[in-house]
Nucleic acid binder design. Structure first.
Lengths: 226, 226
DNA sequence: AAAAAATTTTAAGGTTCATTTAAGTTATAA
DNA sequence: TTATAACTTAAATGAACCTTAAAATTTTTT
């Protein structure tokens, strides 16, 4: 899962970043509204943490512009405790939840999980399942029957995304955006390498699920014919 | 399915493009009315997403000119929320539906599916059916009863087009335009080769549907006499 | 602070397979 | 019958994809 923090207090932002990194989220940061908007518009994030009081472009205006451009990414507003009105405004403008500063780590994590789960469907509390494989994306372990292997963060993100898209074919450029962000110089080969890593681990698991490539279109999960 | 987005807000257009690409639609874009009209007149699109407020040639004028030239492609108007009158005008001018900005992804997808289904009535969410064959154009699989074969991208596009034109005869140059674009040096033989590939796969399926050639005119689907 | 381990990235070479080309064959209409 | 259009197949091409190893980077351990 890729999150975007838009927060001008650099210390706070970095603290949140570290906290979330340790929970295996991929985290990007911006320290002002304009950069934040640019990033939000790329539409590659699963969740945006948005401060309201910011220089250049404040959080509420950012939110408004973003929604106007059709970006539906869930937004968790970070508000100072005396900004009750802003909070209401924010929710009316399309924010999905808010959290008053200062907040407890646990509460932040819980709300993030809640927002991410809301869109999740096949996701049951930190686990994603497809046919006979189960990915625990907190511990980065992939299970099949009794066997299991541990995945790296990138491997996990890739598989997570494939599972969440069910039977749809996922093109490489979408995967690049998801795993490396929008302005990266990662190339197709990077994806291919990780697909290869995953296949090797799935082979070891002897699972009935495999990654199918549809030449020219992308990758999808399928259940092996017996 | 090939869609055309005519929308001057580049960010929004690209967001929609990406969204639709991920749903395996083929997507072209224009950022002003004149280019939009040129493209619309080629009559190779299954659906046009048309913004109203645009430089050079606005959406409503574009729509009028296009209909005057006999182009019947379904049009989904994208309107800002305060353009109620334009919306009504648009529908009177031959638009098929409208959507107010900002809109939710899901709603856009739903309306697109609805419009495509309306004309196709054979199209059910990623599938096209003709008599006893069903083409899943997301996974590029052609099914008949229990058997199935996988198609390549070009084979799928070709069959997709034939099915979507129901019993009409489709000339080779139209197919060339559809599969290879306008300025290509693909020749008739390229089409013939792919028709041949498809026939072989359909033979394997033992289906009752076949591709009929009408000498000098083109190809059409027909149900075999028993 | 250095060493070791793990992860990620880069690079190269090899393989596969969709697509194109081309040539010989067959069918059709005038 | 003859010219043209369409069909089929095999071979050539080239892009897409795979795999592996080594280099670079990051993280963890000593």
């Amino acid at each position: 899962m890729r999150l975007l923090i838009i927060e001008d207090e650099v210390h706070l932002a970095e603290a949140i970043e570290e906290l979330l990194r340790n929970k295996n989220y991929i985290v990007d940061m911006c320290h002002n509204g304009e950069d934040g908007l640019d990033n939000a518009l790329t539409d590659i994030y699963d969740l945006i943490l948005l401060d309201i009081m910011m220089p250049k472009l404040n959080g509420l205006d950012l939110l408004k512009k973003m929604r106007k451009e059709g970006i539906q990414t869930p937004v968790l507003l970070l508000t100072a405790k005396n900004q009750v009105e802003d909070r209401v405004k924010g929710l009316n403008m399309g924010a999905d939840d808010y959290l008053s500063k200062p907040f407890a780590q646990e509460e932040l994590e819980a709300r993030i999980r809640a927002l991410l789960r809301r869109k999740g469907d096949i996701c049951v509390d930190g686990e994603l399942t497809f046919h006979d494989i189960t990915l625990d994306y907190n511990s980065l372990v992939l299970r099949c029957h009794s066997k299991d292997v541990s995945l790296t963060l990138k491997e996990s993100e890739l598989l997570q995304f494939l599972i969440s898209r069910k039977n749809m074919i996922t093109p490489k450029d979408l995967l690049i955006e998801k795993l490396w962000g929008f302005n990266t110089d990662a190339e197709d080969n990077n994806v291919e390498v990780y697909i290869s890593f995953l296949r090797k681990k799935m082979k070891y698991l002897q699972c009935e699920t495999s990654i199918k490539t549809t030449r020219g279109l992308g990758y999808s999960l399928e259940v092996n014919h017996v």
